[in-house]
Amino acid sequence: MSVKSYSKRQSGGVKLSANFTVAEFACHDGSDTVMISGELVALLQKIRDHFGKPVTINSAYRTTAWNSKQGGAPKSQHLLGMAADITISGVPPLAVAQYAEFLQPKAGGIGVYQSFTHVDVRAVRTRWDSRSGSEKAVPGWPGYTEASELDKAVDRLVAAGVIDSPDRWKSGNWTKRAVELLIIKMAAKV
């Protein structure tokens, strides 16, 4: 996907995806031009869909002057419209980074800070930890694994009110009687 240029005044309310508009990516210096990578929008939408909560973009596109004023890197991906510093209420920055790592294991930039996560869609892979206040390179942010089909099925049965002890069912250690009772409960719901 390519980076597109928008006018905040003319297109600020334009929806780029189900949950993001042009205005959310605008530079905080009040300038009108907004550069936005479609790939970045797609990444943020996947993150939003996964956590089921709004993603707040603290900083996305930055003009050179604003980036310098903020102490940003001279070759920051923010200057290209390819980066965003984000938060999700109730979700630690590390958890966001771990999911972003799952989504883009071989490319992109992911940095973890005390109160936010930086994600970008550069072609090369880079990872860093700035939680201590000084940036240090790290090999990555492992930790997230996709739920198994069994876990997803158990979650659906919990939501439907069929079962009330998901941990027991996700463990895979069931007795014949437990399976019989589950079948009986499911049949009653049909």
Rank of each mutant, 00 (worst) to 15 (best):
residue 40 L to P: 07
residue 184 I to E: 15
residue 186 M to C: 14
residue 105 P to A: 08
residue 108 G to P: 09
residue 105 P to V: 08
residue 134 S to T: 15
residue 119 V to S: 04
residue 187 A to Y: 12
residue 22 V to F: 07
residue 28 H to A: 15
residue 154 V to G: 06
residue 120 D to M: 10
residue 62 R to V: 00
residue 60 A to R: 01
residue 109 G to P: 02
residue 181 L to S: 10
residue 134 S to I: 10
residue 62 R to D: 05
residue 63 T to A: 04
residue 23 A to S: 15
residue 14 V to A: 13
residue 91 V to Q: 02
residue 73 A to D: 15
residue 121 V to P: 07
residue 142 P to Q: 10
residue 162 V to M: 02
residue 158 V to Q: 06
residue 43 L to E: 08
residue 32 D to W: 11
residue 179 V to A: 13
residue 148 S to R: 03
residue 136 K to A: 11
residue 4 K to F: 12
residue 179 V to P: 00
residue 33 T to N: 10
residue 144 Y to P: 07
residue 35 M to I: 00
residue 167 D to E: 15
residue 150 L to Y: 01
residue 119 V to Q: 07
residue 161 G to Y: 04
residue 106 K to M: 07
residue 184 I to L: 12
residue 59 S to R: 13
residue 80 L to R: 13
residue 157 L to N: 04
residue 17 S to Y: 03
residue 113 Y to S: 09
residue 65 A to F: 01
residue 37 S to L: 05
residue 156 R to T: 07
residue 25 F to D: 05
residue 12 G to V: 09
residue 44 L to D: 03
residue 123 A to D: 14
residue 114 Q to T: 14
residue 153 A to H: 01
residue 23 A to V: 06
residue 147 A to G: 00
residue 185 K to L: 12
residue 83 A to S: 11
residue 66 W to K: 15
residue 52 G to F: 07
residue 107 A to Y: 02
residue 26 A to L: 08
residue 119 V to G: 06
residue 112 V to W: 02
residue 111 G to M: 10
residue 119 V to A: 06
residue 49 D to K: 12
residue 25 F to E: 04
residue 18 A to D: 15
residue 142 P to D: 10
residue 94 L to R: 13
residue 128 W to N: 11
residue 5 S to Y: 10
residue 11 S to M: 13
residue 168 R to M: 04
residue 128 W to K: 10
residue 161 G to N: 02
residue 140 G to N: 06
residue 167 D to L: 12
residue 26 A to E: 07
residue 82 M to I: 00
residue 182 L to N: 06
residue 59 S to E: 10
residue 183 I to T: 09
residue 99 Y to R: 03
residue 157 L to I: 05
residue 40 L to E: 05
residue 142 P to G: 09
residue 137 A to W: 09
residue 69 K to C: 01
residue 15 K to P: 09
residue 85 D to E: 05
residue 138 V to K: 09
residue 93 P to G: 04
residue 167 D to W: 00
residue 61 Y to P: 04
residue 70 Q to L: 15
residue 163 I to G: 01
residue 36 I to E: 04
residue 94 L to P: 00
residue 20 F to W: 07
residue 94 L to C: 00
residue 128 W to G: 11
residue 47 I to E: 05
residue 144 Y to M: 06
residue 149 E to A: 14
residue 181 L to W: 09
residue 62 R to P: 01
residue 143 G to Q: 09
residue 70 Q to S: 08
residue 188 A to E: 15
residue 79 L to R: 11
residue 138 V to Y: 02
residue 151 D to Y: 02
residue 60 A to F: 02
residue 103 L to C: 12
residue 113 Y to R: 09
residue 48 R to K: 14
residue 41 V to I: 10
residue 129 D to E: 06
residue 178 A to G: 06
